[in-house]
Amino acid sequence: MSLPDPRGPLSRHLLEHFVQSPHEFSSPSPEGDPLGSDDFHLALYLCYELHYRGLTGVSEAWEWNPSQIAFRQSLEVRFEDALRSRIPVESSNGDIATRLRAVTETDSHPSLADYMRFKSTIEQFKEFVVHRSAYQLKEADPHSWVIPRLSGRAKAALVEIQADEYGSGSAERIHARLFANTMDALELDSDYGAYVDVIPGVSLATVNLMSMFGLNRRLRGATVGHLAVFEMTSSIPNRKYASALRRLGANGATDFFDEHVEADAVHEMIALHDMAAALAEDEPALTGDILFGARALVDLDAAFASHLMSSWAAEQSSLYTSDASAPLSL
């Protein structure tokens, strides 16, 4: 991924160091809203990217550089604290499947999928795809970090889901590839990280959440809860996104969404019953974190959806620009 422009003190600080060979540096204390700041979440996204596909012109040795890790942790602490202070601690009663289902029902934000289905313009749909590219071009990867941290039933179930996400042995069916095809069909740039410069913090936060959960073993319960709710709330919105594309005449771009209607109806059952419920039974101490991961996803997705809807209601682009007077066009 090529390097984006800095957006504030944190990302500027990081980028200045990253272009040099790995060395020790001291970190500024993190500022900005840890749930949505553009600067904060770009900096954290860049730290995580060292663990995925890497950054162009940045030494790979930065990945485990102690100063980089310390900086990343200072951001993670603030991010996690902010999430935990918003999310009520769950008492551990009732069966986990019912409680996870209840989490998805607390999701009260105005439905982005319904707006897309009936009202969005093609430009708005393309913006939506650009936001989602921060995750979908590495779809499933953040949850795969948890595989060696699970055992038994939950592990087998997670791998059953991931195998399907990764195309069950055929590279052209990898879900990230299907998403790239959608981008191509919409005449967007499907290169990994091509749009990082225009993706706001509120969108990057939804991806950083999964990376933070996945890369910290102690948060393995949260990864499982996140994946469960992700799969449980996918089929129906994806049907609406596919129908939006048909309404807009972009029939060649629907495959990714159509595939997810069917695939995630399967994944939902495996994720909820075979993975999350099995993990809660095998490791009851993780129950609280399974629910935390689930609620954190619903929370950040709601913020993402309301950002898009309010930008469009004000007839503005929902993408990030450092210069508010220069409207963006894709």
Binding site: D164, S235, V261, E262, A265, V266, I270
Partner: peptide, 21 residues
């Protein structure tokens, strides 16, 4: 199209016999 499939048993899917959530 996949190794594990879900067959609708509620009757409301729009892609029967598959489940669509």
């Amino acid at each position: 199209r996949r190794e594990t499939i879900a067959l609708c048993r509620c009757g409301h899917s729009k892609i029967r016999p598959f489940c669509d959530g």
